[in-house]
């Protein structure tokens, strides 16, 4: 039963989330917008399409996209981004971070492999952003791990330990930090505008510019998984923050987790409506805030342990 529900939500929530964010954004901007189910249609469409691969590219291009997809497919099944135990196995926070890095490394390789100048631009930007954001990501995961004394993600987000119920501040800062990290890592609004199609300024979209058909579908699925996973982890942090006033029934927690993910989606849509994209050189200033939040969380966690 658990596995079935988990699989179902892993297959549905990521795409619905993307569709929901697009719909909400459209509504906020006084547009009708595509249906919430549009990402599903897109992916079916892409699978049905022919793919064109640059003649100059080597096998690395396809391999990179595949590795990228596999990493995220593994992570979505093993990271506790919903309130229950994952179906396959537990992941350590460092494995999590390194798998993300591996996925990114291969997607950058495949972007470089085609020899397209835009891909190289985007690859370099992606590398810079992830380099800047990684400390914040690690700190925001380390803080709850200090609190719970374990580095396994499953143990950290298990709602069982006594301490978790009395340390809202650690969890809340970690959650905020993870959300800010997600905005940067997924190239969302203040850092990158996913709706512009000017390749000179884009980060994520330009990375996949050479991919088409099935390849594009795979990277889109990977992206959706990543989005859901980050938002899910962030929601888990926030839920742990208010765990002392939550019921312990797992279905209610699941519903709250999913509702939380979608409300972060709404927040994202809101942010993307009111914010403007930052100048590239100003991005580090923004990322610094996620690092600061991570630092707060860590200090607070250390304070509790001491």
């Amino acid at each position: 039963m658990n596995i079935a529900v988990y699989t179902l939500s892993a297959l549905l929530v990521p795409f619905l989330l993307i569709g929901f964010v697009q719909k909400a954004k459209a509504q906020l901007q006084n547009r009708v917008g595509a249906s919430v189910l549009q990402p599903f249609f897109n992916i079916f469409k892409l699978f049905g399409k022919n793919q064109i691969i640059s003649e100059d590219s080597s096998g690395l291009f396809r391999a990179g996209i595949l590795v990228n997809f596999c990493c995220f497919a593994y992570l979505i099944w093993s990271v506790p981004w919903l309130s229950f135990s994952p179906a396959i196995s537990s992941v350590d926070i460092f494995l999590f971070v390194y798998l993300l890095a591996t996925a990114r490394f291969f997607s950058i390789l495949s972007a470089l492999d085609t020899g397209s100048p835009f891909g190289a631009f985007a690859g370099s930007r992606e590398a810079t952003l992830s380099f800047l954001v990684e400390p914040a990501m690690i700190l925001s995961l380390v803080a709850p791990s200090i609190l719970t004394g374990s580095s396994s993600l499953e143990r950290i987000f298990s709602f069982t330990h006594q301490v978790s119920s009395q340390n809202p501040i650690v969890w809340i800062f970690a959650g905020i930090s993870l959300f800010l990290v997600a905005l940067t890592d997924l190239s969302r609004m203040p850092v990158d505008d996913p709706t512009t199609h000017l390749e000179l300024t884009m980060v994520h979209e330009a990375m996949t510019i050479e991919a088409s058909g099935r390849n594009l579908a795979l990277s889109e699925i990977g992206y959706a998984f990543k989005l859901a996973m980050f938002f899910g982890l962030s929601v888990q942090c926030l839920l742990h923050g208010i765990a002392f006033c939550l019921p312990s029934d797992q279905w209610i927690l699941l519903a709250m987790s999913i509702a939380g993910i979608f409300s972060l989606g709404l927040l994202l849509a809101l942010l993307e409506t009111v914010l403007v994209k930052l100048k590239w050189t100003k991005c580090p200033d923004f990322i610094a805030y996620s690092l600061t939040m991570g630092l707060f969380a860590c200090i607070a966690a250390l304070g509790v342990r001491a």
Partner: peptide, 30 residues
């Protein structure tokens, strides 16, 4: 260490701390 200990943590402490955090965030932007 008393300040962050689980039992003391009440809303008041959170607000007091929030003012310090607001000041720190203020430093981050020009």
């Amino acid at each position: 260490m008393i300040s962050f200990s689980p039992f003391m943590f009440s809303f008041l402490q959170a607000i007091i701390l929030a003012s310090a955090i607001m000041a720190i965030l203020m430093v981050g932007t020009g």
